[in-house]
Design a protein around this nucleic acid. Structure first.
Length: 431
RNA sequence: GCUGAGGUAGCCUAGCCCGGUAAGGCGCCAGCCUUGAAAGCUGGUGGCGGCGACGCCACGGGAGUUCAAAUCUCCCCCUCAGCGCCA
């Protein structure tokens, strides 16, 4: 949520920033929010005036009663005040609600360095690592490869749970766990605290961390309960300090979340649809940081470097893009995507999303920065980045490390987590 | 799930029965004192609106009664404890 005071003090700056998003609706909401805010302030003053009179009359009546007298004319005036006050308060509440609804729908202000562009085709490549090689003749799609190895059950999963679900079994499960542990160890080494968050969140904190549209499109709701399955551990990690005042001297707080992620919408169909690239459920190790405002650009680069390090150590070629204005989404002020190279698909595909959300989430969550037990008005910045989403990283490995006989070499950095094992070969038991 | 106790400022607590400007402590800030610090003393220390004088709000949320609600009534939410169930 944008600071309402910024809207009042620097409307032209806010407007110019919103204009870069090329969505006339935003400018309309912006204008309406300013109007509603001005009307609200007028309504507030009117209600305050009536409340003041009520308080004065109440005190006078009380004083009169205390000295044994009565004051019929004051009581007569006081008696008809509540009707007026009720109307004034209703107007005040309505205008505030209208303003806040508009304010909540407005996207975050974008960083100056976000490139202008219409959609993901215009994201700006800012770094590349490794040498993308075209896929060899006969390279199998990852879903086929997994099935051939006896390590995945897609049809059975569809019968049990529907499209977009999977059973994994055998060596791929151990590889999945190895990836998570590897990423977690890397982050712990770099000062992050590993966190197992709740996998379900109430609606109120959830509204603080995500685009409202996500409630319809992305999140699974638990029937009959005020609970949503998390779409990423970013969300419960952001809510960890809900309503708190963070000590300035304790920032930045670096957290490494590990959790399954649940998503209703999994995007369109595409190359190699069968498999685990687009699924309703996957495992993810996530970086999350609460930082002082002035530190957030540097922290953003730090978590990007950590995510890059994961793929470097896995020896998977990738590139980094600076996500453009048309592809940024509402919450982030700036976002890098890391796109790994998928030789079978012959394309770079998103495996990491790395965002600086500035004060947008923290303000909604009522989180502030204070010093030595003293509450302040400053709002911290929040940042998040994938370290590894195992579904996609596994697909990258299944393509990049697939051997001519269909077995999968294990990236050397992961071997210690698999008892030194060097490759995944066909499962024979329990077919 | 049942029963009980609770939710008051950054934190802790009083006030509630019996309606009348939300008291105190801790922490924090400033001043005094001190070579410096601690202690001690004095004052300050929430949010919103207003250029300001100032006013309003804030006792989990909402509704009601009343001239007036932290306080009375009703509904809801949350937390904790005990019991039950349970990996």
């Amino acid at each position: 949520m944008i600071d309402v005071e910024l809207l009042r003090k620097e409307p032209t700056r806010v407007e110019a920033n919103l204009a870069r998003r090329q969505n006339p609706e935003y400018l309309q909401w912006f204008t309406d929010a300013i109007t509603r805010d001005a009307e609200w302030r007028a309504a507030l003053q009117e209600a305050d005036r009536l409340r003041r009179r009520r308080n004065e009359l109440g005190r006078a009546i009380g004083a009169a009663k205390a000295s044994g007298g009565a004051s019929p004319e004051l009581e007569a005036e006081a008696k008809q005040l509540p009707t007026q006050l009720k109307a004034a308060e209703e107007r005040e509440r309505e205008l505030a609600a209208l303003r806040d609804a508009l304010l909540r729908r407005l996207p975050n202000l974008m960083d100056e360095s976000v490139p202008f562009g219409k959609d993901d085709s215009e994201n700006q490549v800012v770094a590349t690592w490794g040498t993308p090689q075209p896929g060899a003749e006969g390279l199998r799609a990852h879903g086929e490869a997994l099935e051939a190895l006896g390590m995945a059950e897609f049809e059975r999963a569809q019968r049990a749970s529907g499209a977009g679900f999977y059973y994994l079994r055998g060596g791929i499960v151990l590889l999945d766990l190895a990836l998570q542990r590897f990423a977690l160890d890397l982050l712990v080494e770099r000062g992050f605290t590993p966190v197992e968050p709740p996998y379900l969140l109430r609606r109120a904190p959830y509204e603080g961390v995500t685009d409202l549209a996500d409630f319809e499109k992305v999140m699974y709701k638990i029937e009959g309960e005020d609970l949503y399955l998390i779409a990423t551990s970013e969300h419960p990690l952001a809510a960890l300090h809900l309503g708190e005042i963070l000590d300035e001297d304790h920032l930045p707080i670096r957290l490494a979340g590990i959790s399954p992620c649940f998503r209703k919408e999994i995007g369109g169909h595409g190359v190699d649809q069968k498999g685990i690239f687009r699924v309703h459920q996957f495992q993810k190790v996530e970086q999350f940081v609460f930082a002082r405002a002035e530190d957030s650009p540097a922290i953003h680069e730090e978590i990007r470097a950590n995510a890059e390090e994961v793929f470097r150590r896995l020896e998977i070629p990738y590139r980094v893009v600076n996500v453009c204005t048309g592809d940024l989404g509402t919450v982030a002020a700036k976002k890098y995507d890391i796109e790994a190279w998928f030789p079978r698909q012959g394309a770079f595909r998103e495996v990491v999303s790395c965002s600086n959300c500035t004060d947008y989430q923290a303000r909604r969550l009522g989180i502030r920065v204070g010093k030595a037990g003293r509450p302040g008005k400053l709002v911290p910045h929040t940042l998040n980045s994938t370290a590894v989403a195992t579904s996609r990283a596994l697909v990258a490995i299944l393509e990049q490390y697939q051997q001519p006989d269909g077995t999968i070499a294990i990236p050397s950095v992961l071997r210690p987590y698999l008892g030194g094992r060097a490759e995944l070969t066909a499962e024979t038991a329990n077919r």
